[in-house]
């Protein structure tokens, strides 16, 4: 059931992303509304798939790799709705929805449930705080990544003087501000997630003796984005440098956390 709903959502996302990014020369008047409707349908179907997974396994679908990626993807999709009002003709939405589609596609290829029962240690209040904060953090960095890609694209067009048709893209300044906001929100959420994860580990009957790969990867990501916030907010550096920070940070996070998720079949093995 969840696979069917996810496939439906994927179809909607691909339609939205494709149309937004291709930008037909003379779009009919009904197209923007139809695309918003398709995005809404996609998110509903996506949510339906998550609920179906949750119902089938009687636990939040965040332990398995596929389930986690699907949840992260929907948080990005919802975040994209908040970015939409500053997005003029919807190019940014196209990039974000494409990212959601890619992640949802990956989740379809990964196992979405785990065979073994959840350990009793998982039944603590810190786990949902830890998981939710990290998912919000990762999703904010994903949005910052999308914003930065568009920033670098607009900047490149301005620098290479490809000026015709630029008006359908958001301004550099608004993209730069959006990037900062996404990174700051992501950093705060990541900090909360790391802290909650630490408290969760400490409340275990047998606290872990060392840090696992996922913890190391998260701490490295935290350090990276701490530097990004420092450079932007304290140092006042913006624009291309901030965009590169966001792009490299998210790509690094995607590779490291993605690798860990796939190899461990879950976050913490």
């Amino acid at each position: 059931m969840d696979a069917l709903l996810f496939s439906g959502a994927l179809l909607c996302y691909l339609t939205v992303a494709g149309t937004r990014l291709v930008d037909p020369a003379e779009p009919p008047a009904w197209l923007p509304r139809a695309l918003d409707l398709a995005l809404g349908l996609g998110l509903l179907s996506h949510l339906g798939g998550i609920v179906a997974m949750w119902t089938a396994s009687s636990e939040p679908p965040i332990r398995a790799a596929g389930g986690s990626v699907a949840v992260i993807a929907i948080v990005i999709g919802v975040g994209a709705l908040f970015v939409r009002p500053r997005d003029g003709k919807g190019v940014l939405a196209g990039v974000h929805v494409a990212l959601v589609a890619v992640l949802l596609g990956i989740s379809l290829l990964l196992p979405r449930t785990v065979a073994h029962e959840a350990a009793p240690a998982l039944a603590t209040v810190w786990l949902p705080v830890h998981a939710f904060s990290l998912f919000v953090g990762i999703s904010s960095f994903a949005l910052a990544f999308g914003v930065s890609i568009v920033y670098l694209w607009v900047r490149r067009r301005l620098k290479s003087k490809q000026l015709v048709g630029l008006d359908r893209l958001p301004s550099l300044d608004s993209l730069d501000q959006l990037n900062t906001r996404c990174v700051v929100v992501g950093f705060l959420a990541l900090t909360l997630g790391v802290a909650a994860g630490g408290l969760w580990a400490l409340t275990k009957e047998t606290p872990p003796t060392g840090l696992g790969e996922a913890v190391w990867a998260t701490l490295i990501a935290w350090g990276w984005y701490a530097a990004a916030v420092l450079v932007r907010v304290v140092g006042g550096w913006r624009g291309r440098l901030a965009a590169h920070f966001s792009v490299m940070g998210f790509v690094g996070m995607l590779v490291s956390l993605g690798g860990i998720l796939i190899l461990n079949q879950g976050w913490h093995g």
Binding site: L169, S171, L172, D173
Partner: peptide, 9 residues
């Protein structure tokens, strides 16, 4: 004006 807006909004 349009180009300036592309930079500054």
């Amino acid at each position: 004006v349009d180009l300036a807006r592309q930079v500054f909004g």
